[in-house]
């Protein structure tokens, strides 16, 4: 008993994380709603694509991109963006 009393702090520090880790297993089944997550993902994709368009324009202005390539890439990205916007709206 002395041992317990003397080392109660240590024991708590060692046992608490274990209980914390095992705790989810004791719950009843969790249903994850993926909707919010998916929406967030799409939004981030959209931001990245917007950035890519800006970078593309910059590259073109400097002259690191020829016109055909620029127009093609831009229309590709724009198509992708509108697809994403459409699916964000759906959710």
């Amino acid at each position: 008993m002395d041992f317990l009393a003397n080392h109660i702090f240590t024991i708590i520090i060692f046992v608490a994380p274990l209980i914390y880790s095992i705790q989810p297993l004791l719950l009843s089944k969790i249903n994850v709603i993926n909707n919010a997550y998916d929406k967030d993902l799409l939004k981030r994709k959209k931001i990245i694509l917007y950035r890519q368009i800006k970078e593309l324009e910059m590259e073109f202005d400097i002259g690191n991109l020829n016109k055909d390539d620029f127009l093609l890439r831009r229309s590709e990205i724009k198509a992708e963006v509108s697809e994403i916007i459409a699916s964000i709206k759906k959710k």
Binding site: P17, Y20, I22, P24, L25, K29, I30
Partner: peptide
């Protein structure tokens, strides 16, 4: 694909 297992695994990772 039981989400409880994922949570536990994640927390064990932190532990």
């Amino acid at each position: 694909l039981d989400h409880r297992l994922f949570l536990a695994g994640q927390r064990l990772g932190l532990a």
